[in-house]
């Protein structure tokens, strides 16, 4: 119910020391390649490649990764089946014999494409989420000129998410041990109490945080020490590798563009 292990991995994986900008560029560019592809081949290769990188390169536990991947995978599969049956107007390639339902060629192709694109995109997202801590992503956001006020709110928010998640988990378990979720009506009551108490607590925390900040000379902006490393320190070798990889992908997208199973 409450999973924040994603963040734990982001701070303790083997790619942690790699240049942040390099990781982000790699993840986003590959994600875009997967997005613009018109055939399922390239996205599936990307999904496989990213998964191998995450499990064998970044040494994220494969059990955790598979569990993390399971939900988008099953959702994608359902979409695939749904599209194959309901989103075609072309040739029937498989008749069910009931309700005049049939898998059509164009529906199947579209479903497969969406399914592949979801896997490819999600693997890239997982790569970013599992290898790059949020705190380092903020420096990337600063580079692309996201307003200071948004960054400050985002940073504070990031810090408080975990505080409140802890409190929510505590409250939830406390309510559960007192049979707070034994029936539907009680569930709503307990959940409502949890939510409202959480809101009041968040409010108090916010006020206290302001008092604490003000007593330490808060003048409306939060200054942080930047981590070493910039876009210039990616290194020629990594940069060449990155460009080559993306070029291969673009060529893949171009040459497999008209590939269809049916």
């Amino acid at each position: 119910m409450f999973s924040n292990t994603l963040d734990n991995y982001a701070h303790s994986n083997k790619y942690n020391d790699l240049n942040t900008y390099f990781k982000v560029l790699f993840g986003i560019l590959t994600m875009l390649m997967s997005l613009i592809s018109t055939s399922p081949v390239v996205p599936l290769i990307i999904a496989l490649f990213m998964s191998v990188l995450i499990i064998f390169g970044a040494k994220v536990s494969y059990k955790f990764y598979l569990k993390f991947f399971f939900f988008p995978f099953s959702f994608g599969l359902i979409t695939f089946i749904f599209m194959a049956i309901f989103f075609g107007v072309g040739v029937h390639i498989l008749e069910f014999g009931i309700f005049n339902l049939a898998v059509t060629a164009d529906g199947f192709n579209l479903g497969l494409l969406v399914f592949a694109r979801m896997l490819g995109g999600f693997a890239c997202l997982a790569f970013l989420a599992l290898t790059t801590p949020m705190t380092e992503l903020f420096s990337v956001l600063r580079l692309i000129k996201i307003p200071q006020i948004v960054l400050e709110i985002a940073m504070l928010m990031y810090r408080y998410i975990f505080v409140f998640l802890d409190e929510a988990i505590n409250m939830y378990h406390t309510q559960e041990t007192r049979l707070g979720y034994s029936s539907l009506k009680k569930s709503f009551k307990s959940m409502g109490m949890l939510g409202s108490n959480l809101f009041i607590r968040t409010w108090m925390k916010g006020e206290q945080a302001y008092i604490a900040m003000e007593s330490r000379c808060y003048d409306g902006s939060i200054r942080t020490v930047k981590k070493q490393g910039s876009i210039k320190t990616i290194g020629t070798r990594n940069l060449v590798l990155l460009v080559l990889f993306e070029l291969v992908l673009i060529m893949g997208v171009y040459f497999t563009g008209s590939f269809r199973i049916f």
Binding site: M191, K205, G206, Y210
Partner: peptide
Amino acid sequence: HPESKPILAVSGAFMFVLSSLKLP
């Protein structure tokens, strides 16, 4: 009102935590 900045931030965190609760 500079004091509203932390409050906005914790409200965002509240929205995040609320959205990670399972709905009965």
